[in-house]
């Protein structure tokens, strides 16, 4: 395998990792505040559909992104009303949101475009442009570092950079601000937050709104990347993001590492499939299942225990 192939694999690693990372960080905010979110998949899917539809109709990916994110936030709010306001089961609410998005996206898309549940292809001007970082062309011919900079780091759409930037921002917000401290406390010991006179309900709503925003970006990325919306186009990425979140033990930098790892598995799959290693042939299905298998192993606590936020999954009921 030569150097340029490697660059190509890492390049697509970034592309695969971007929606995972955005969704994973969405889950991070939500779960750190004590709201378990298995509806990441549905929110991404809803956002992908609305982005695809609106971007096609208006001819602007930015309006698509805006509308898609609004759709994702709306789904987040349903989750919030059910699980924060009405103290409902967060898991069940998440499951419902996944089905709601899966169903509504097809029903509305069929009625809207009559294409059997997909949206029309976006013309190039209604998609995000690749951003060429400064000096990318000039440095192209520098050995080793040139291709790394101009092929791998430069030349992605804006959401790739947004996702990467979201990692330090998330870290700083959660671990270096008062808001972040309170948000994490709402997920560990909501009673104490309440005693301090801070509203747990409001904190949790903020968290799920941020989660909605990030899932919206993830969905918009998928619609833009594929240049349209198709049925079930998230294809379990919301759950891989959830797996990555657990794998990363609910920490932002580790989340990035895990999403890059899972992205790498997808990117490298075509090169690994049906090749044999030590006499064993690698089936493509095995590579598909690997993120899930790794997560189960992590969950089992064999490779360092993954301990979720302590109050995660429990509705906070104020003492009377």
């Amino acid at each position: 395998m030569d150097f340029m192939t490697l660059i190509a694999i890492f390049d697509s690693t970034l592309r695969y990792a971007t929606p995972l990372l955005l969704a994973c960080l969405a889950g991070l905010y939500s779960e750190r505040a004590g709201v378990v979110d298995i509806g990441l998949e549905g929110k991404m899917l809803g956002a992908a559909f609305v982005t695809g539809g609106v971007a096609y109709v208006t001819g602007s990916i930015w309006l698509g992104l805006l509308a898609g994110t609004a759709a994702s936030i709306a789904l987040s709010l349903i989750h919030g009303v059910a699980s924060i306001t009405y103290h409902g089961d967060q898991l069940i609410s998440g499951v419902a949101i996944n089905f709601l998005a899966a169903g509504l996206s097809i029903v509305i898309a069929s009625a809207w475009f009559g294409l059997g549940g997909r949206t029309p292809s976006l013309p190039p001007e209604a998609r995000f442009q690749n951003i060429n970082l400064p000096l990318a062309d000039t440095l192209q011919n520098v050995p080793i570092l040139g291709p790394i900079y101009s092929e791998l780091i430069s030349g992605h759409t804006i959401l790739v950079y947004v996702a990467l930037l979201a990692v330090p921002v998330t870290w700083a917000v959660l671990f270096r601000t008062r808001f972040g401290l309170r948000l994490r406390a709402a997920g560990e010991n909501p009673g104490a937050v309440d005693t301090a006179g801070v509203s747990v309900v409001r904190l949790r709503y903020y968290a799920i709104l941020i989660a909605g925003l990030l899932c919206g970006l993830a969905g918009a990325y998928l619609a833009d990347f594929a240049a349209n919306f198709v049925k079930d186009m998230t294809a379990g990425r919301g759950f891989i993001a959830l797996a990555a979140l657990i794998f990363a033990k609910w920490r932002p930098w580790q989340a990035m590492g895990t999403c890059l790892l899972f992205g790498f598995l997808s990117a490298a799959a075509p090169y690994l499939e049906n090749k044999s290693f030590m006499g064993i042939e690698v089936a493509s299905q095995f590579i598909d299942a690997l993120p899930y298998i790794l997560t189960v192993i992590i969950l089992a606590g064999f490779v360092g225990k993954a301990i979720p936020p302590r109050a995660g999954g429990q509705p906070y009921v104020k003492e009377q």
Partner: peptide
């Protein structure tokens, strides 16, 4: 009626949401 079968998924989602998560409402 050319209504996609996924309409049933919507109803299913609403049933899960209402009976499971929004029961208190």
């Amino acid at each position: 009626h050319q209504i996609p079968r996924e309409m049933v998924t919507v109803i299913q989602a609403l049933v899960i949401l209402l009976t499971g998560a929004l029961d208190n409402m």
